[in-house]
Amino acid sequence: MERVLVDETISDKVQQILAQEFNINAEKDENLHFDSLRIVKLIVALEAAFDADLDSDLVTLESFATINSISQLIETTLNIEIEV
């Protein structure tokens, strides 16, 4: 599995998933106002797209406030997995 992704690529991918699967067209820093169920739905979509496991203690409303914050969380998670 290719895990060498730069932040910009992740953000673009998140933006694409939000547009395609959630019909949300948001700027990268725009607040998304997600409720907890929608966050889990997005996590499931992101896990499938990035082949990552985003665990519960990493996931808060704040982490999913903007596309950029989501992207950073994914990047962190992927880096952790690479280190392991």
Partner: peptide, 17 residues
């Protein structure tokens, strides 16, 4: 409470995936 939120999180992941 955090540990219960963890249970709910996994249940919801199963629900949606």
């Amino acid at each position: 409470i955090s540990s219960m939120e963890g249970v709910r999180f996994v249940l919801n992941k199963i629900r949606f995936s």
